[in-house]
Design a protein around this nucleic acid. Structure first.
Length: 435
RNA sequence: GGAGGGAUGGCAGAGCGGACGAAUGCGCGGCUCUUGAAAAGCCGUGGGGCUCCGGUCCCCGUGGGUUCAAAUCCCACUCCCUCCGCCA
């Protein structure tokens, strides 16, 4: 969430920033009013509380002095004030909850550098890359034999079995088999291998508490998007960002340890409730998938460099895999609610004839850290400061898998796997039709 | 799942209804002494809200309750430890 103090001290700036992403400025006014009322209620409640404390001490003193009548009088007065305090506390609580409710659903302020715009139409492509670009290739071009959608290729090669996935879990739960499953495993190994060292490898839980989902901004606003295990009140994570952001929840870190960098592979679960009927073929949109995530806590002045590092690493993997991609600077209207600035990596998939979002590299400023209460102690001393959080998918497998299978398809219908995966995939880098 | 025990400051650990934000020790920082170090001594050492910047309020796992007054009593929950059961 954003800092209420900012709303108090510079409401104009908050409005200007939020209007850029389509928030009604009246919401900011409402927030400011609630905040004022809330603070007045706190002051009233505390005055009464202080009076009760003074009287209570005097009761004890009178009793020690043996003056029972005086003690009784003081106790009666204190009880009367206590009742007033009770109602003042209730009022303060109501206002506080109302304030928090508004704050929890209010999105982050976009970074000044984030481009203007209302929706994905207004996103800015900042660069493109394709294999052979250095050697002067004018554009990545797909041959006719590569213009076959991955769900057809996958079925023909018996490496993707969507019907059986559906029979087990319902539609949009993919089932990989044979070399398709092995390809997925090889991709995970590649990504982890490239980042461990600089990024500590973590294997977090995939079911988490409500509090953990709230810290990243996935709750309360996007509850419909997540799977919830009601019996134990646990949520299936939509991304490793969720457990990683909360890993140091409530802690005060030493400045010297920043930036804290972590990488994790997890299953990711998404209900896709608002997307019924969209991209239902193949792997473009699925309920469960595996993803390697890169994540960092950083001091504010480190955030820019760390953001660039994560983006560079995600790009590096696409280049190693030889997949044509473009880097898109998301406009304010298309930013995720918690993000201040996001670069998406989109891979072109010739069979599906679409640009597929395979990574989203975001800077959240202190929006998530405030919810998760993750701070650091400045090296020079002084009060703790909220960290900045950043993350990016190192690569989200189903869409990468789809693009690899489409680009890799050869005249004879078999698929060539990029040599960089040989170490985990094996030396036979061809997926041939079942004989 | 059953039975017990526990959760207090960076750590250890006292307090078990009345000036307790909390003894004591360790750790950490500063100073004194010393050529320097050690030792010793002295001082300091959590987080947060509001503020008319004088203060004031909150936080002893979490949330409720009792009381004039709660770290202390009651209830619920969470987590940790021990034993039993079950189990990869």
């Amino acid at each position: 969430m954003i800092d209420v103090r900012l709303v108090r001290e510079d409401p104009g700036r908050v409005k200007d920033a939020l209007v850029r992403r389509g928030v009604d400025p009246a919401d900011v006014d409402r927030l400011a009013e609630l905040d004022t009322a809330h603070r007045a209620a706190i002051a009233r409640q505390e005055r009464l509380r202080a009076a009760v404390k003074v009287l209570s001490r005097e009761v004890g003193q009178a009793r020690r002095e043996g003056d029972a009548a005086k003690a009784a009088d003081l106790a009666a007065e204190s009880r009367r004030l206590g009742e007033e305090e009770r109602s003042a506390t209730a009022e303060e609580g109501d206002l506080g909850r109302a304030l928090r409710e508004v704050l929890l659903v209010l999105p982050n302020l976009p970074a000044d550098e984030a481009p203007d715009g209302a929706d994905e139409q207004d996103n800015v492509v900042v660069r493109r890359w394709w294999p052979g670009k250095e050697g002067g290739a004018p554009e990545a071009e797909a041959a006719e034999h590569q213009r076959v959608p991955h769900w057809e290729v996958g079925e023909a090669l018996r490496i993707l079995d969507m019907p059986r996935g559906a029979s087990l879990a319902g539609s949009m739960f993919p089932l990989f088999r044979g070399k398709g499953a092995r390809l997925s495993r090889a991709l995970t190994s590649l990504a982890l291998e490239r980042h461990t060292g600089a990024y500590e490898e973590i294997r977090p839980p995939t079911l988490v508490l409500t509090e953990t989902m709230t810290s990243t901004g996935h709750l309360p606003k996007f509850a419909d998007e997540a799977y919830h295990v009601e019996r134990d009140d646990l949520w299936a994570i939509p991304t490793a960002e969720v457990p990683l952001t909360s890993m140091h929840r409530g802690e005060i870190l030493d400045e010297a340890v920043l930036p804290v960098r972590m990488t994790a592979v997890t299953q990711c679960f998404r209900r896709e409730a608002g997307a019924a009927g969209r991209d239902t073929r193949g792997l473009l949109r699925v309920h469960e998938f595996e993803k390697v995530e890169l994540f960092a806590y950083a001091a504010p002045e480190q955030a820019h460099d760390v953001h660039a590092d994560i983006l560079g690493r995600a790009e590096g993997l696409l280049q190693e895999l030889g997949l044509p991609y473009r880097v898109v600077d998301l406009c304010c209207g298309d930013l995720g609610a918690s993000s201040a600035r996001t670069f998406d990596l989109e891979v072109y998939a010739p069979g599906s004839d679409r640009w597929l979002e395979v990574s989203s590299v975001s800077w959240f400023r202190d929006y998530q850290a405030r919810r998760a209460n993750v701070r650091y102690r400045p090296a020079g001393g002084g009060s703790p400061v909220l960290v900045h959080t950043l993350n990016g998918s190192a690569l989200a497998w189903p869409r990468i898998w789809a693009a690899l299978v489409e680009w890799g398809r050869r005249h004879d219908g078999s698929v060539a796997v990029p040599p960089v995966l040989a170490r985990w995939f094996g030396d036979d880098l061809v997926i041939a039709p079942p004989g």
